[in-house]
Simulated scan of single mutants.
Amino acid sequence: MNRITITVTTPSEPACLQLQDALSDHLQALTGSSGRASFDPQAWGKNDFFLLAQDENQHAVGCVAVRSVSDTVGEIKRMYARPGTRGVGAQLLHALEAKALAQGYCSLWLETRRINQRALDFYLRNGYCIRENYGRYVGNPQAVCFEKTLVPPAEADGK
């Protein structure tokens, strides 16, 4: 697994913009949509956050955002790990879940496209369950929505 550092930052940092552009290019090629329309970094709420993963040489290798759906539900946006950075996505997701829980979120939701089998497998492998499509994804047969209930570490350990 890659050794990385994950920090809270803003989506407008140059390294974050580069990663988001790489994600958009990948999604455009895979699904025909860049996903840019579903993430507006200007509409940033007080409980929204953006994480940046960097390797030991300070190269940006991954990013992810959470935006508030409600006081207790966060939505995962712009999840991306550079190709060849095995394990970075899982590390980002775990850091995101811990931060979301600390900020009072009880569950996380997200959407990906049915054609994105790698993402579908990733979220299922990490404890996310398929849920009814929500918001702008209702009625979209290409969209698959997921959710995960966040459990404090002491409860997860059975204590």
Rank of each mutant, 00 (worst) to 15 (best):
V61H: 00
T7I: 07
A29M: 14
D25E: 05
S34I: 04
P11N: 05
H59C: 09
A15D: 10
S70A: 09
T72L: 08
N116D: 08
G45Y: 06
G74Y: 00
G158P: 14
E13T: 14
V61R: 00
G45C: 10
T9H: 12
A15V: 13
T31Q: 05
R136S: 15
N140Y: 02
G45L: 07
S107I: 04
T85D: 08
F39S: 03
N57K: 13
H59T: 12
G32F: 12
Q42E: 06
L17C: 12
Y137E: 02
V69Y: 03
V151K: 05
G89M: 10
F49C: 05
A81S: 11
P41G: 07
W44M: 08
I76V: 07
D25T: 15
L52G: 01
V138G: 06
L17R: 13
G104V: 09
G139M: 05
V138E: 12
R3H: 10
F146M: 07
C16N: 08
S12F: 11
Y137Q: 02
G62H: 01
Q42H: 12
N140Q: 08
Q117E: 15
E13P: 01
L101P: 13
V73M: 04
A60C: 15
V69M: 12
R114W: 08
N47R: 14
K159N: 10
C63V: 04
T10M: 10
R67T: 13
A53G: 12
K148I: 15
Q20K: 02
R114Y: 10
